[in-house]
């Protein structure tokens, strides 16, 4: 039981980090960003680069990778999303194309063999009678802190409130003097940075390879759909739901069947309640 509790929490945390960034972009900018998985992979490779090339300490490398991806996010928004804003399917295709280009560029640059990036926290610890990697606990803690901070930012900070206002009513926001183009850039930067953070913490526990972004993005998709597109609270709830149900199915049946569980959950949600289980 304690095992399910902890592992479920860890996988929920990784889903939530990816999904919240993804849904933030949708909720505010009304964009389905298919390059979110590419942000994840690029984040892991950025960390790999900083560690391998400059011998940076893991904790420093994480921060550097986050900064780089925040910039990448803003640039992607400026050149590949903004110009197509009026055509939602074109944005979808544009970000899809970007993710293919990014993945292939990583593949050509670094090769298909998987790389290792260092753990930030080493060694196993015992908790509730379960031995779990310290990095796993770090993941849970970071997810709680970062998503909590984001919530505070959106509701308390001036820029955050502007973002929130834009998500409610973009035209109205513009009328009261909010520069929506800045808001969109910030949202993309935050979203990409969260993907990078997630990759930098989860990456060392798995493997780093060019196509590593695909599964996390599919998970983010699943979580966001089940939770309701654009709803941060819904994403957190759905991350917990999917994280735990997958962990439980993995224990009871097998990991492969756990994959089907979330896919079927997504399909059923889309068909029965496209606004999500926790959406309006």
């Amino acid at each position: 039981m304690a095992e399910i509790l902890l592992y479920g929490a860890a996988s929920s945390a990784s889903y939530a980090l990816m999904a919240v960034g993804f849904t933030l972009v949708f909720g505010v900018a009304r964009v389905l960003n298919l390059a979110h998985g590419a942000f994840y992979a690029c984040g892991a490779y950025a960390m790999y680069g900083f560690c391998a090339a400059f011998g940076a300490a893991p904790a420093i490398a994480v921060l550097a990778a986050i900064a780089v991806l925040a910039a990448v996010g803003a640039i992607v928004n400026r050149f590949f999303v903004e110009p197509l804003r009026a055509r939602p399917m074109a944005v979808l295709m544009s970000t899809l194309a970007l993710s293919i280009v990014a993945e292939q560029t990583l593949l050509i640059t670094f090769g298909s063999q998987s790389r290792n990036i260092p753990l930030i926290l080493d060694g196993p610890v015992s908790l509730l009678g379960v031995r779990i990697g310290a990095q796993g606990l770090l993941l849970i803690a970071v997810a709680i802190v970062v998503i909590g901070a984001l919530w505070l930012f959106l509701h308390k900070a001036k820029l955050g409130k502007a973002i929130y206002a834009t998500s409610q009513d973009p035209v109205g926001a513009q009328l009261v003097g909010i520069r929506t183009s800045t808001v969109f850039a910030v949202v993309f930067a935050v979203s990409a940075a969260m993907a990078a953070l997630s990759a930098a913490i989860v990456g060392p526990m798995q493997t780093v390879s060019p196509e590593m972004g695909l599964m996390p993005m599919i998970k983010a998709f699943s979580v966001v759909i089940v939770g309701g597109l654009g709803s941060i609270g819904g994403s957190i709830a759905a991350a917990l739901l999917l994280g735990y149900s997958e962990t439980i199915v993995s224990y009871l049946v097998s990991t492969e069947w756990a994959q089907i569980v979330s896919l079927v959950a997504v399909f059923v949600t889309l068909v029965v309640r496209p606004s999500g289980l926790f959406g309006k």
Binding site: L84, S99, I100, I108
Partner: peptide
């Protein structure tokens, strides 16, 4: 070999843009 999909991605990017 490996440039194949890259070309696809670039073509799509140009077409959509």
């Amino acid at each position: 070999g490996e440039y194949r999909l890259l070309v696809y991605g670039l073509i799509l990017l140009v077409v959509v843009r």
